Simulated assay, not measured.
Amino acid sequence: MADLTRWTLNRHIAASLLTITAAMAMTPEAKAADETCFKTPTPIMSLGFGSRYEADSKTRSAIDEDSDAAVTKALKPIDQFIQNLAKVVSKAQKEKDVATRRAYQRCVVDSIYSWAKADALNEMRTFNAKLSVPSRVGGLAIVYAEARDQVPGLHDRERIIEKWLQKRAQETVQFFETEATKGAARNNLRAWASMAVGEVGVLNRDRGLVEWSILSNYTMIANAAPDGSLPLEMNRQRHALHYQLHAMTPLVTSIARLCEAGYGKGGADLAKLMTMARFSVAAVKDPGIVQKINGKSQTVKPGLKNNLSSIAWLEPYVSLTNDLEMTNEFSSLRPLSNSKLGGNQTALYEGRRISCTITAQN
């Protein structure tokens, strides 16, 4: 019995020593990454779901509650993944210690790499899945861009990520050019696709993808009404203002990031973009402005404070336009954040001026 007790004790001691040795053997970067990261979810390979809206809703404004819940459930793992990545990006932005900041940035790269090497999101089985995935690809591309080239030794992983994003972006272009309905090809869904494709184009220096994004942005702005409203979104009855904001979010962000990358105005008539931004903010403060257009009371609660995520695009907007009047509208509400735009937009853009001078050579 004594021998058995000694054997058991020695085994526990040996196991403890192995654990201690392994911990000591970890590089500072690996140890910091382990302490600062989250558990990467299993890559989502395939999606297939129907519409959020009732089948007979021609304006896609009457929500089917059961279908809406099913869509939200299917997309939740991806959206949670992007939210977690955006939180890590925001932590990295605030971190002054270089090792810890790099650990956060490595977390982002390693997590997205696990999805890239699995070729995640490679099977969109339904029309509505194909409509929904571009905004998620855009969110992943933006958080990746914020961590890219920041940590030595990750270039092999980064190349795999960029190749994966390239495939998803090319599929997005193919879908919107050949399968998307006339409405989807011109409304907020096109704006989200444009942001994703443009971001991936910048990452890969793919001028074809960038040009598709620029043309998409140009078309969105050209189709806006003189007052700054988007006619296709105004047709969405009680959800019109919601979708106006849902379109402005990627549209403004895409233009700002394309300008910052050196591709000129990114398809933007900046004067008209300012009209669209001011209309959107005025309507959030008083949704009755939209009700006068389409005759329907709006689901959006009045007031900027009630819609912080939906107006986070104002940060890249003022960096792009230097619209001081608009800055005064929301400065007291900072920080503004939206996970699909890379997290804390105030940290990314406050105090910065983005030039729309053409500098990109590719």
Rank of each mutant, 00 (worst) to 15 (best):
R205C: 13
P250F: 01
D156I: 10
V137A: 07
S331I: 13
N84V: 03
C37E: 09
L189E: 13
N235R: 13
D206Q: 05
A240K: 01
A256C: 05
L308I: 09
E260T: 13
M326D: 03
F49T: 06
D64T: 06
M326K: 00
S213L: 04
Q105A: 05
G264K: 07
Q170V: 13
M276H: 01
L75F: 01
T172H: 07
A86E: 10
F81M: 05
I255F: 02
G343Y: 09
T72P: 05
K292N: 12
A2S: 12
Q244W: 00
L273Y: 01
A347L: 09
N84C: 04
I354V: 12
R102N: 14
D56Y: 05
L47P: 12
N338Q: 14
K58F: 02
A247I: 01
N322E: 14
T8W: 15
D110K: 07
L230M: 11
R353W: 08
L314D: 10
R125G: 11
A23M: 14
V88D: 11
P226V: 01
K305H: 09
S132G: 10
G295P: 00
L320T: 08
K94W: 03
Y53L: 01
Y317G: 05
A360Q: 12
Y53F: 08
A283M: 01
N338S: 06
F49D: 10
W313C: 03
P287R: 02
S309Q: 13
I293G: 06
S57A: 08
C259I: 06
N10P: 04
M124L: 15
L17M: 14
W164S: 10
A180F: 06
L241T: 07
Y218A: 15
S46H: 08
Q170K: 15
G183N: 12
R207E: 15
S355T: 11
F330C: 06
E35T: 09
N10H: 15
G50F: 00
W115S: 09
T357S: 11
R157N: 13
S339Q: 11
L273E: 06
L341W: 02
Y317L: 08
K265A: 15
F279K: 00
T327M: 12
T275R: 08
K167C: 08
P287G: 04
D68P: 00
L273C: 08
T27H: 03
G343W: 05
F49P: 09
V200S: 04
D79F: 04
S132P: 13
I44Q: 11
S280M: 02
T249S: 13
A70H: 09
R125A: 14
E179T: 13
S61N: 07
G303K: 10
M234V: 14
K296R: 05
T5M: 12
G201N: 09
P287Q: 03
A283I: 07
P335C: 04
A193W: 00
I255H: 01
E171V: 06
I221S: 08
A180H: 00
T275Y: 00
G351V: 02
S67D: 11
V98E: 15
S135A: 13
Q150P: 04
A120F: 04
V109R: 05
A70I: 07
T42G: 03
N84G: 15
D286W: 04
S229I: 01
L273V: 05
N128Y: 14
V202S: 10
L270Y: 07
Q166D: 15
